[in-house]
């Protein structure tokens, strides 16, 4: 299994220390396009797509493996080991924050620091715990995803998967950053929004920074503070950026927060 091809891994930049960027649910490694290049002068920058997203090898998508976040965390650890990374800086957005947490527990030498952007240990409310969503709302989301096929159709799929470098397909490739096989999108949404990693947080031994956006409906301030309270020795920085994707809406603020921490 070629891990580099499977996860569409791209390595760039100068520097001995690696900085690994992991995208969240929805799109692919392009989510880091305004952030990652800023670190190329000092770090070895590693970008990748989760299997099922972006330019990953869709034939590697295994329903049962990816039915929990552990499948994704194993991949992340494998990428790290394929590149021989130790003491790297992990930057994970959204669900990838928890994927990084799991990977760091599995392979404690892999990361020396973690930056979690908009993390949530559990999206669905549970007793006193406020995740922000009810089970019913998540069920509605899974159904709603089928209404947005993102231009994905059975007829298009072969050209998307088989010819990523053919420029004549460029026009058809609109939305490609977020285009996913609807079945995989639904499965990734399910594993993302039904996961519960609250009990994993105390096992983290890596110094961790949480970047918390304001007015983020996916991962609220309360949720971010919960993560901060459970990861030993973690810090939290509140960004002025609003929404769930500060890596796109306020890249400069994200870059300076990461830079200040590492």
């Amino acid at each position: 299994m070629d891990v580099m091809a499977r996860n569409n891994v791209h390595v760039s930049g100068r520097g001995d220390r690696a900085m690994v960027f992991a995208h969240g649910f929805g799109c692919d490694q392009n989510m880091w396009r305004f952030v990652a290049p800023e670190f190329e002068s000092e770090f070895k920058v590693v970008l990748f797509d989760h299997v099922g997203a972006g330019g990953s090898d869709l034939s590697a998508y295994d329903k049962s493996k990816y039915s929990t976040l552990h499948g994704y965390a194993d991949d992340l650890a494998e990428i790290g080991s394929a590149l021989g990374l130790t003491d790297a800086i992990f930057v994970g957005h959204s669900v990838s924050a928890m994927i990084g947490v799991l990977a760091s527990i599995k392979a404690p030498e892999l990361f020396g620091r973690m930056v979690l952007v908009g993390p949530s240990a559990r999206y669905i409310d549970d007793g006193d715990y406020v995740g922000g969503f009810t089970e019913k709302q998540i069920a509605e989301l899974l159904e709603f995803l089928e209404d947005n096929h993102m231009g994905w159709s059975a007829a298009m799929a072969p050209s998307i998967m088989g010819n990523p470098d053919r420029p004549e397909l460029a026009e058809e490739l609109t939305n490609s950053f977020c285009r996913t096989d609807p079945e995989i999108a639904k499965a990734f949404a399910r594993v993302t929004f039904t996961s519960d990693n609250r009990s994993d947080l105390p096992k983290v031994t890596v110094p961790t920074l949480i970047l918390q956006c304001s007015e983020d409906i996916i991962a609220s301030e309360e949720v971010g503070k919960f993560v901060r309270s459970r990861i030993p020795g973690s810090e939290i920085v509140f960004l002025k950026a609003t929404g769930h994707c500060p890596n796109l809406s306020a890249p400069a603020e994200v870059v300076s927060a990461i830079r200040a921490y590492v």
Binding site: C27, M31, S94, F133, N148, C178
Partner: peptide, 22 residues
């Protein structure tokens, strides 16, 4: 609605930033 909110935040807003239109 909630599904639309999540979708907007995770797909539409990022795509607008990345490709300018959707």
């Amino acid at each position: 609605n909630m599904a639309g909110r999540i979708y907007y935040e995770t797909h539409i807003a990022p795509l607008l930033r990345m490709q300018g239109s959707f």
